[in-house]
């Protein structure tokens, strides 16, 4: 199985992934609002985080975690993959249909990964969680 490795520290906030995703799924229409990947941008803390859409949920969370990235606390919504009523991402404007990443291409060749110039998104073979962690340690 293929996976997309998201390394937010390499993201530059250019949102080219949003353009590529929407264009490939909507017959050439470039529209970040129709993209199944969105980049969360916190300029004040120099943070860019690509988030790829996962399953639809029809309700808000009743409790949430706090995520710490680069020493800054964020609401979990920032990295959550769900399309939910609490956040306007991953709903098609107008129809409000929830959009979910479909690992486009056969074999998988996600357009967001193909266009990312900085390696923030990479298509990898499923190594298993522990292997990923080990590899990271090796390169660190």
């Amino acid at each position: 199985m293929k996976k997309i490795l998201v390394d937010y520290k390499k993201c530059t906030g250019c949102r080219q992934c949003e353009t590529a995703c929407s264009a490939s799924h909507f017959d050439g229409e470039v529209n970040p609002e129709k993209s199944r990947i969105r980049v969360y941008i916190d300029e004040e803390n120099s943070l860019f985080h690509p988030v790829i859409s996962g399953p639809f949920t029809n309700a808000h969370c009743t409790s949430k975690n706090i995520v710490i990235m680069d020493g800054v606390e964020y609401d979990e919504c920032v990295v959550c993959r769900a399309s939910c009523p609490g956040r306007p991402w991953f709903f098609e404007p107008g129809t409000k249909i929830a959009l979910k990443c479909d690992f486009c291409g056969d074999p998988p060749d996600p357009q967001c990964v193909a266009i990312c110039a900085h390696g923030a998104l990479q298509l990898i073979d499923d190594l298993g969680v522990s292997r990923i962690r080990k590899q990271k340690k090796k390169t660190a």
Binding site: C14, Q16, F48, A117, H118
Partner: peptide
């Protein structure tokens, strides 16, 4: 510098935060 940054749809990312 804390990060480099790209304008919209730009792979060059020359901006410095």
């Amino acid at each position: 510098m804390t990060r480099n940054k790209g304008c919209f749809a730009c792979s060059i990312a020359c901006a410095r935060m």
